[in-house]
Design a protein around this nucleic acid. Structure first.
Lengths: 343, 343
DNA sequence: CTGAAAGCGCTTACAG
DNA sequence: CTGAAAGCGCTTACAG
C-alpha cells in the first residue's frame, strides 16, 4: 500500500476504509513503526516541541514547574526543551534564541525580574502573576497572601513582619500586598526585604529576627518557604519556640516544608492546573497559526487566568496572649527574648 | 549562489573560497538566517537533541543537574528535552520511549532505584555512582562520605548516626559506606533509615533524635541536605543546640544550605564537571555512531568516571567534651537532654 | 477509497 | 572552487 494511505490511516485524517485503517494500525504496532518527527516537521512546519524558559532555573520551585509543564505538554503530544539563563538577562535572551532556532512551536516563560517577551517569533504563554500585563495564567498570589493573613489573624496575631527578597518582583509584591490588605485594617505589618540568596556570603546571614520579636512581632509571613526556612532556623537558634512564641509561614509548599520541625504553614500554587491552562492556551495558538508565517509573537491569553492558591496549615499555635495587641503597649517585648539560650 | 555552497560555507566543511565564506556568513547574519533543524535532521539522521531522564524530577537536586546538563549540552550545540516519570518505573519507561520517538540522539539518565538502561536504541550516559556497573561518570560518593567523616572525627566526634532514607540506593550506600570506613576503626556508627519523603503524612514525622542524643550520639551525618534539614530542625525544636551539642552534616549543598542557621556543613558534587564529562562522552558516541543504524544502546564510557566531592564546612564546633568517647561510659547521656525546653 | 506526485530544507557525493 | 542533482520521511492536494 502507499505511503499516503499509511499516513492518512495513522493520523486518522479519514478517506481510508475502516478495515484498511485497522490493518495498517496493527502492522505499524507490530513493526514498532513511529513516524519520523524530522520528516513531519519538515513537511508541516511544526516540531511538536515547546520550550520552557525559566530565568532562574536554580529556583527550588523549578522541579514543581518543570514536572507540571512536562506532564501537560506530553499529554498534548508535545515535548519540552529546557533553556537556562542562570539568572542573567543576556544569557536568557540567547537561551530563548536557541530555542527559536530549534524551531520550537511555542514557549512557556516564567519570568522573574522583568523578562521581555517581545519579538519572539512564536506563541508564548507567560506564567507570572495576574496583575502583570501580558500574563497568560498564574496563581492568585494576592489571594494567597490574603489566606495566609486571615490564618494569622485568626490565630490572634496583630503584628506581622512580611519577609521577601525582591521588591521588584510582581509575584512578591502581590503576595505581600494580599497580606497587607487583610492586616491593614488597624493592625500592624512591616516588610523586611532581605539579601537575595546569591549575595549571601555562605556563612549565614542573620535577619535579626530575635530583635523583631523583642519589638513585638509575633508572626513572620515569608514570601517563600525558602525565606521561611531561614526565619524558622534563625528563631530556633535564638531559642524562640515556633510556633508557641512566634509563627512562621511561607509560600509554595517546597519539598521539605512538610518534613521539618515544626512543619511549615504555607500557600501552595496549583501548578498542575496552571501548567494545564498555559499549555492548552499555547497549543491552541500554535494550531491556529500558520507555521510558515514568521509573525511577531505576543503572549497568548487563556479564559481562566487566575488560579486560587491553597492554604496548607501545619503550624497553628495561637499568638502569645501577652503580645496582643502589642504596638500600643511595649510591655511584653522583653519577655519573649528570655527563651534565648545561645552559648 | 547555490544552496550547496551556502551549506558548505556555513558548516565550514571546506571546498569554498575564503572570500565566498566571508560573504555568505555576512549575508546570513544580516538576514538572520538559521539553518532549519528539521531539514538537517531529515538529511543527517541527527536531531541535535539529547534527552534528560530523571526518575524523580521532584528531587531538590534537579535544578543543579538540569542546569549543568543544559549548559554542557548547549555548549556542544545540543538541546535538552526533559522527561519526567514521577517516580514510577512504568511511567519512566514510557517517558524514555517518548524521547526515543522524538529522535533524540542520546540520553542522559540519572537513575534512582534501579533503572533499566537496556534496549534503548541510542547512546546513553548514566550518572549514578562509581560503584554501579554501567555508570558513565559520577561524583565520588564514597570519598565524599570519607571527607564528611574525617571532618567529624577531627572535631572529636566518636559516636555518629548516619541518616538515609533508601537502603536500596547505591548512592546512599556509598555515601554511608564512606563514612563508616573512617569511623569503623574502633569508633561507633549506626545507621537510621527514615521514611521516604513521599510517605510522610504531612504533619511532621519525628526521627527521635533527642533520644539518640541521650544515647550519646553527638553527630548526625545525613545522606542528603534534605535529611539534614529534618534533623537540624528537630534538634533545634528539642532545644538541642547545633553545633554545640550536636553536629549535623548533609550532602549536595542544596540551595538553602548556606542560608539556614546554623548553615550546613555538606559535601558538594561538582555537577558542572560531571555534566561536562557525561555530555562529552555521549556526544562522542553519537558522532561515532551511524545514525541510520538502530542498534541496541549500551551505556557509554568516559575516561574519567569519578569526580571528587568538595567538603563545604560551615558548622565547626567541637564535639561536647563530656561525650568523647561515650559508648564505653554512659555518664554524659543525661546531661545533653537538659537543654530541651519544649513547651 | 486508494495511489502517484510534489515539495518541505537540508547535506552529500559527484560532475564541471 | 562552485553548482546541479538526489534523497532523507513525511503530508497534502490532486487524479484515478
Amino acid at each position: 500500500m502507499s505511503a499516503a494511505t499509511v499516513s492518512n490511516a495513522l493520523s486518522g485524517k479519514g478517506r481510508v476504509s475502516a478495515e484498511m485503517v485497522e490493518k495498517i494500525r496493527a502492522t505499524a504496532a507490530e513493526l514498532g513503526y513511529v513516524p519520523s518527527q524530522a520528516g513531519r516537521a519538515l513537511r508541516t512546519g511544526r516540531t511538536g516541541v515547546i520550550g520552557l524558559v525559566l530565568p532562574d532555573i536554580a529556583n527550588p520551585l523549578f522541579p514543581q514547574i518543570a514536572q507540571a509543564i512536562e506532564l501537560a505538554a506530553s499529554s498534548s503530544g508535545y515535548g519540552v526543551l529546557i533553556a537556562d539563563s542562570r539568572g542573567d538577562v543576556s544569557t536568557q535572551t540567547k537561551a530563548i534564541e536557541r530555542l527559536i532556532d530549534r524551531d520550537v512551536d511555542g514557549l512557556v516563560i516564567v519570568p522573574r525580574r522583568g523578562t521581555r517577551v517581545a519579538d519572539v517569533g512564536c506563541p508564548v504563554a507567560v506564567i507570572d502573576t495576574p496583575s502583570t500585563p501580558g500574563n497568560t495564567v498564574a496563581a492568585d498570589h494576592w489571594g494567597g497572601g490574603q489566606q495566609i493573613a486571615e490564618h494569622l489573624k485568626a490565630l490572634g496575631h496583630r503584628r506581622v513582619l512580611i519577609i521577601g527578597n525582591n521588591p521588584a518582583s510582581n509575584v512578591q509584591n502581590d503576595r505581600a500586598g494580599g497580606i497587607r490588605s487583610v492586616f491593614g485594617q488597624g493592625l500592624h505589618t512591616d516588610t523586611l526585604w532581605i539579601e537575595p540568596l546569591e549575595k549571601v556570603s555562605g556563612k549565614g546571614c542573620p535577619l535579626g529576627l530575635a530583635g523583631k520579636v523583642a519589638e513585638g512581632y509575633t508572626a513572620f509571613a515569608c514570601i517563600s518557604d525558602l525565606h521561611a526556612l531561614r526565619a524558622l532556623t534563625e528563631l530556633q537558634r535564638a531559642g524562640i519556640n515556633v510556633p508557641e512564641k512566634a509563627s512562621v509561614t511561607g509560600f509554595d509548599d517546597l519539598i521539605w516544608s512538610p518534613v521539618i520541625t515544626p512543619a511549615l504553614t504555607t500557600a501552595r500554587m496549583d501548578m498542575t492546573e496552571i501548567a494545564a491552562i498555559a499549555v492548552a492556551a499555547l497549543v491552541k495558538a500554535i494550531r491556529e497559526r500558520d507555521p510558515f508565517d514568521p509573525e511577531i509573537g505576543a503572549p497568548v491569553t487563556a479564559e481562566k487566568s487566575k488560579v486560587p492558591m491553597h492554604l496548607v496549615v501545619r503550624q497553628s499555635a495561637a499568638a502569645p496572649p501577652a503580645l496582643q495587641p502589642v504596638h500600643t503597649t511595649a510591655t511584653a517585648a522583653t519577655s519573649v527574648t528570655e527563651g534565648g539560650h545561645q552559648s
